[in-house]
């Protein structure tokens, strides 16, 4: 069983991306042996009122609830996000919140950002933050060229004790995450593996040793990205099989189902 923590549906305006619809995305993932996925709506990057994108998402995955776990996207600078967050969790059944500060034009040091992280934490909701959506080196002239750094997200997490933040689409190194005495700099961070080297240098294995196996989650970036590279990364981690299972699906299930039990 593999659960993909990092997928998206909806139109991307800057490049033709295949398999954008929920039925096509499900086929794509299932053909590669993936049994479930967290999915966010790409439209939410661009709508001013991104709650409309969350409503679209909930409707799109309604018939695939056993496969897809919906991820809300909200902008803490926009009106009514507090009500929308409650609606997303209590009425739409979305199980995580995505923040995209570079697309919604705020910094993670803004008080509004801290407020929405605190609200999500109160609801026991994990928060996803992509370091980037696509490689900025190839960006469309209307797209952002700014990424979100691990350090920036880490500092953000420290501002709300108990918060759980999954960084997607990022590389990371042990010195970025671990103090000299071996303690974690940012205890609330989790990491999706699609951009981390695996076989060469055993980077993921080194991170597992330093940070802990419960912090890493399989993700592909589909349909923006090909899926097989991430599957190969998972396969080539030098680790015990039970650790691989945790990365493949158990950590994601734990992270996403915790809130449904609250």
């Amino acid at each position: 069983m593999i659960f993909d923590i990092n997928t998206a549906t909806g139109h991307w305006p800057f490049r033709r991306v295949p398999n954008q619809t929920i039925p096509l995305l499900r086929c794509l993932l299932a053909e590669r042996g993936i049994g479930g996925a967290a999915v966010a709506n790409t439209h939410a990057l661009f709508y001013k009122n991104c709650q409309d994108a969350n409503l679209e998402l909930a409707e799109a995955i309604a018939d695939d609830a056993e496969f897809f776990t919906g991820v809300a996207t909200l902008n803490p600078l926009y009106a009514a996000w507090e009500r929308d967050l409650v609606t997303c969790t209590e009425e739409l059944g979305l199980k995580a919140l995505r923040l995209v500060p570079r697309y919604h034009d705020y910094g993670l040091d803004a008080p509004e950002a801290k407020a929405i992280l605190a609200a999500a934490t109160d609801l026991n909701l994990p928060v996803f933050i992509p370091a980037r959506v696509v490689d900025v080196r190839q960006r469309h002239w209307m797209d952002t060229e700014q990424q979100v750094s691990v350090e920036e997200i880490g500092r953000f997490s420290l501002g709300v004790p108990g918060s759980r933040i999954v960084i997607t689409e990022s590389t990371v190194s042990v010195p970025e995450l671990v103090n000299d005495d071996g303690t974690l700099k940012y205890p609330g961070l989790y990491f999706e593996i699609s951009r981390m080297p695996s076989a060469y240098g055993q980077t993921i294995a080194g991170l597992l040793d330093a940070v802990g196996a419960d912090r890493f989650l399989f993700g592909s970036g589909a349909p923006f990205k090909e899926i097989l590279p991430s599957l190969l990364k998972l396969d080539t981690i030098d680790c015990a099989e039970d650790t691989r299972r945790r990365i493949a699906h158990e950590n994601a299930r734990t992270l996403l189902e915790t809130n449904t039990c609250s």
């Binding site: 080297p197 076989a199 090909e226 899926i227 097989l228 590279p229 190969l232």
Partner: peptide, 13 residues
């Protein structure tokens, strides 16, 4: 170019 799983994965996809 040292980015190994990506090279193989995208080719076979």
């Amino acid at each position: 170019d040292g980015i190994m799983e990506e090279g193989i994965g995208k080719l076979l996809e």
